[in-house]
Amino acid sequence: MYEAVHAYPDGASTVARHARTAARHGYDGIVVRTRDAVEVDPTATDPATTAAPNATRVAAIREEYGIDVVDAVEIDVDGPASAGGSVGNYRPDHTVVCLVGGDDRLNRFAVEEPRVDVLTRPMADGGGFNHVLAKAARDNGVHVEVDLGPLLRATGGRRVRALSNLRKLREILTYYDAPYVVSVNARSQLELRAPRELVAAAAAAGFDPDWIRAGLTAWGEIVTTNRERRSGSFIAPGVRRGRHETER
């Protein structure tokens, strides 16, 4: 199970501190949504064995806490026009590309763009989600994020509205079998919760425990697929360079 976090300077904890806490909570890895927090050498061919100074630091963090640390980017733009350019820019350099939704046009853009891995916080700030978007997300393999942050941290009317939005999102996603991920959008190590606590809290809000676990595992699946795609031996889905191929 993976969790996606906001690291310093976007959040209040560094990548290493998030990794330390997440490892104690029993996660298999963290996806760092902050663009510059985990820098991986873009010229290296195999992202798993990059040798840039920053990459060795990330490798050291992985080694120290026994937890996977994944570089990701969260694209937060005003409209689809600039989003298109950003996706093109960041896609080659990052393992996971997320796009912040919360606006009808951005939500629409994200689910119709196969190069986007995750549409984050689609229902925040009055964004809508419907069957059209769910079908597009399923066809393009774009995961929709179920943000459990308000369940844990909001109170009163804001929490009620967030929970009713989450319920609507869950029903649409389940009906169309669209891919999804679950996260609490932790900005510091204090906001992280162990998977078991998260599952229990979500169950109290009407979610199926297995559905939540699958959403946490889905981050890991995105990471595995994208690492495979970005590795040197990948040619096309199902086609890879075999051991009989010689360098030319």
């Binding site: 369940l151 204090l190 919760r193 998260l198 809290a201």
Partner: peptide, 18 residues
């Protein structure tokens, strides 16, 4: 466990809980 997970701050001080 669910209720404990939802404790995010005490008197305005954020806390992590497990």
């Amino acid at each position: 466990r669910a209720a404990i997970a939802c404790v995010h701050a005490v008197d305005g001080d954020p806390i992590g809980i497990r």
